[in-house]
Amino acid sequence: MIEAVRLSKSFGDVKALNKITLEIADGQIFGLLGTNGAGKSTFLRLAAGILKQDEGTVCADGRPVYDNQLVKQEIFFIPNDYYFLPNSTPEDMCRYIADIYPRFDTYKSRQLLKFFNLNSDRKIAGFSKGMKKQLSLILGLSSGTRYLLCDETFDGLDPVARQAVKSLFAREMVDRDLTPVISSHNLREIEDICDHIGLLHEGGVLLSQDIEKMKLGLQKVQCVFASAEDRVKAFSGMDVMVSESRGKLDTMTIRGTREDTENYFRGIHTVFFEILPLTLEEIFISETEAVGYDVRKFIIE
């Protein structure tokens, strides 16, 4: 588990992180969401032990990360622009990383290079941006670490590659208890990968929740009420977060379990009633609007 407690970091007059408390549990894919300047990269760098926090703590498995050789053997950080040794090939990089990370799996790295169709003897300087991202992921996946921190690594990957990586993550999570942490400023890019989402904004944590739990805890109901009194009863008896009316058709996002919602609506006369699946986007909008924040800016059409 990666745990940050009241973590703060400033760069001059700019407060990048302001006393954030965040927990990244093992065995899940954690998505770190936020706009540019929210503090995602800063958090990841603190978690990777690159930066030293001004206040608070950041620990991996209960041990502080900063300048801790043993803990850092369990963490592999992939920044947005991964640095490759000058004039090197993928083979050279694998050899280098293998010398640094004691559990680096050379066989796996070669397999993954084949899988992604990357020539191990070709100069990396000639790779495209997407190929470089793939290579950085290969190095990370082969490193044998327990935590893989990816800073906007998925931004720019094509959907096929993204799916491939997702399945690789799943396999690694089963095989060696890998915990990937992926940051992005695009919800749609990571919604089908992550299990848990943390939302940073202006150096603070807006929310941090398990996606399934979020989905389980929110219901989207479409119904036509028999009478206005039934409508009032419905709105007053349930925690309606968002509602929309089109003629007689009401669409509501209600906080509560499906069972509770169904039981409650049994007591209300409706002409039409249906519980619909919620997308992550809708969940987010609901959750963040409830705290007065417009999350639509994360959703790129």
Binding site: R45, A48, G49, I50, Q69, L70, V71, K72, Q73, I75, F76, F77, P79, Y82, Y83, I100, Y101
Partner: peptide, 8 residues
């Protein structure tokens, strides 16, 4: 980022 993230 590259060097300081390494376990050294």
């Amino acid at each position: 980022d590259f060097y300081e993230s390494q376990p050294l």
